[in-house]
Amino acid sequence: MIQKKICMIGSPAVGKTSLVRRYVEGVFTDEYLTTIGVKIDRKTLKHGGQDVNLILWDLAGDDAFQPLKTSYLRGMSGYLLVADGTRRSTLEHALQLQQRIEEAHVDVPFVVLLNKHDLLDEWDIDEEFVQALRGRGWDIIESSALVGFGVEEAFAQLTARMLTTAAA
């Protein structure tokens, strides 16, 4: 069976753990319990008739307290770059993280998630900026771990990208 390692990367409290829980267990919790170190989960998904075993690495949010450990990225086939759509700074931070990953010579597909899209009244993202990023060929998906939309789609899209990259 095909195995793919996916990392969840982004600022603290953007919803990385919640997205994985929604995807793997189908549940959501309001309470915020910050992740220490890394939490690993598995989920099998069907892609083009074959089973793909995803190993999900939910990494601690990157900040001065727990900076992203690039050694954790080893063997990764792709990543979800998560930002909190109600906090513009987390998207800016996500771009910096993407750059850091690129500089570490990790060249794998990624999909950007603008999470918490259920909080539209607090939405803080400039649509033109998003369009500009899409113009660069980036995959950007609005998601909500709370409501559950965009989540399956994000993992499926990333998987599709990982498999075409592997085939290329």
Binding site: P12, Y32, T34, I36, D63, F65, Q66, S89
Partner: peptide
């Protein structure tokens, strides 16, 4: 120390979030 680390981090991050919220 894991519990202590957790508590420390949690309060630092909670505080960061509430500061951001206030600013917004």
């Amino acid at each position: 120390n894991l519990d202590a680390v957790q508590q420390l981090l949690q309060s630092a991050r909670d505080e960061h979030l509430s500061r951001e919220r206030e600013r917004k």
